[in-house]
Design a protein around this nucleic acid. Sequence first.
DNA 1: CTTGAACCTCTATCTGCTGTAGCTTGTATC
DNA 2: GATACAAGCTACAGCAGATAGAGGTTCAAG
Lengths: 142, 142
Amino acid sequence: MLAIGTLSRRTGTKVQTIRYYEEIGLMNEAGRTAGGQRRYFEKDLDRLAFIRHSRQLGFSLDSIRELLDLSDNPSQPCAEADSIARRQLRQVEQRIKRLQALKKELKRMVAECDGESVAECKVLEVLRDHSECLTEHDEIGA
Amino acid sequence: MLAIGTLSRRTGTKVQTIRYYEEIGLMNEAGRTAGGQRRYFEKDLDRLAFIRHSRQLGFSLDSIRELLDLSDNPSQPCAEADSIARRQLRQVEQRIKRLQALKKELKRMVAECDGESVAECKVLEVLRDHSECLTEHDEIGA
DNA sequence: CTTGAACCTCTATCTGCTGTAGCTTGTATC
DNA sequence: GATACAAGCTACAGCAGATAGAGGTTCAAG
Ligand SMILES: [Zn+2]
Ligand SMILES: [Zn+2]
Ligand SMILES: [Zn+2]
Ligand SMILES: [Zn+2]
């Protein structure tokens, strides 16, 4: 039986985060000692490792929930798991595209400023006036 | 004098978001009518446009706050504005790098799965075991 | 038996908004 | 001047995905 700190160390997950995953139903409710401390099996550690690795690959907790459900039913066809991964891939590609457009604009405004006073700063000029941009950037954040 | 809805329409910002910017001190407190409705000048609209455009380029609200402060003192040298932009550029480049590594892994796992049952799904196999990965991906999210 | 690291719950905080409820104001039209 | 109704107001809750701290309890080594 493993204590929560052991899972924490072995997966690089903060203790609070593990408890959080339990709270939102991503981790099963752990067994408890007489005194109320959580105790885990190896399979819980595997599940946590799966969650963490999926997070590192950028999957949302909702997607991970689906993937875990699938993983628990090994006889099913895996089409759905694959489609979740493909969706994730598309999202990543979208984000890269957007960030590359941002990178281009940022590079340009940094390069074009010759470091005089704020009044003629190219960086601030571009921020004030989108028409100086070469690309559109509809969505915010992401 | 402009109503909040006008600023909203002219900058593509939700009304609540404008009020939020005021709440956190990013927009100056607006003047009010006798009945308590906010009324704005053109300069407020310019400031809001600056904020929105900066957000579209991925700047954090904290960075925008600094940029606005600089923009309000036109006699200063612009080195600081430029360094904020360069920092932003570095962040964007970092994120692109990270996402490209993720993209590679996702592509590979999607390509290698031949769509049999969940038990042999390559996607789930990789998620279970990072040693199948070709790259490291220390940080989560971002 | 004592110590102290590790555990517990509960609550608050972060970023950057967005949505809802329930009420009031401003303005156009009659 | 009356009325309708869009647009405004405040206050609060909630989203993802954790993270931090307060204040108290338990476990295990020595
Ligand atoms: Zn400059
Ligand atoms: Zn632009
Ligand atoms: Zn598969
Ligand atoms: Zn991996």
